[in-house]
Nucleic acid binder design. Structure first.
Lengths: 110, 110
DNA sequence: TATACTCAGTTACATTAAGTAACTAAATGA
DNA sequence: TCATTTAGTTACTTAATGTAACTGAGTATA
């Protein structure tokens, strides 16, 4: 009895990937960065309703996961650019599939 | 000036897809249902830490999106099965890509 | 030389979502 | 009879998000 009570039968790496991607805003931030390195305000403006507070939290998390890198250009004033690592760019095919699904199955808004 | 202030340049259907998939638990519930129709408690047991409360909320949302269907078998006692619609099964390639990414880029837990 | 504005955030506070645990009601099993 | 299963719901707590104002360094404008 109860052979599936206390532990998941799912692959922990798969679960981890889903956990990363399904945190609010994470996917959209990564998708936005797929178009190239960007500064904090650029990402912020590209994603309406995303607050600077959450953006800075997410960027830190994504940096820790090795998906995003933060590069400081010591100009004056200092310029900070966020971009995807190889690991981050490797997420692209997921977004391609999401794009396919959405254009096939979601209604076109009027 | 300010050409990207007040509206997103992202495709609204793509954004909607991300919104659906990145709601907590939604992806894992859909993934779980990819293995076939299942009853409420089966899904609940397969996904530890997912409470019955959130599961019932998510299943209703997914039903409204046309991703999941709820079928009542009028046996005694009544049996209720949740399964994916065509729209729901069409999400499979996304999970395939997530699986590929996770096995290539995430560390194997010890 | 004030004044305002930009950038890259942070802080305080309010609202919403999620987690926890107990409960329901009908049916079944020991 | 008492416990258990199923498919949830309800009440309450805790965690995550949203909102808005604020910093502090640098730059541009009047």
């Amino acid at each position: 009895m109860d052979q599936c009570q206390s532990q998941s039968q799912m692959c922990p790496r798969f679960e981890k990937a889903v956990e990363i991607l399904s945190k609010r805003w994470t996917s959209l931030i990564v998708f936005q960065l797929l178009s190239g390195p960007q500064r904090f305000v650029q990402i912020d403006h590209a994603l309406p309703n995303l607050s600077g507070k959450v953006l800075s939290e997410r960027l830190k998390e994504l940096e820790q996961e090795g998906i995003v890198k933060r590069v400081v250009f010591p100009e004056s004033p200092v310029r900070i650019e966020y971009s995807l690592t190889d690991k981050g760019r490797a997420l692209a095919p997921i977004f391609v599939e999401i794009g396919k699904w959405s254009s096939e199955w979601l209604p076109v808004p009027e």
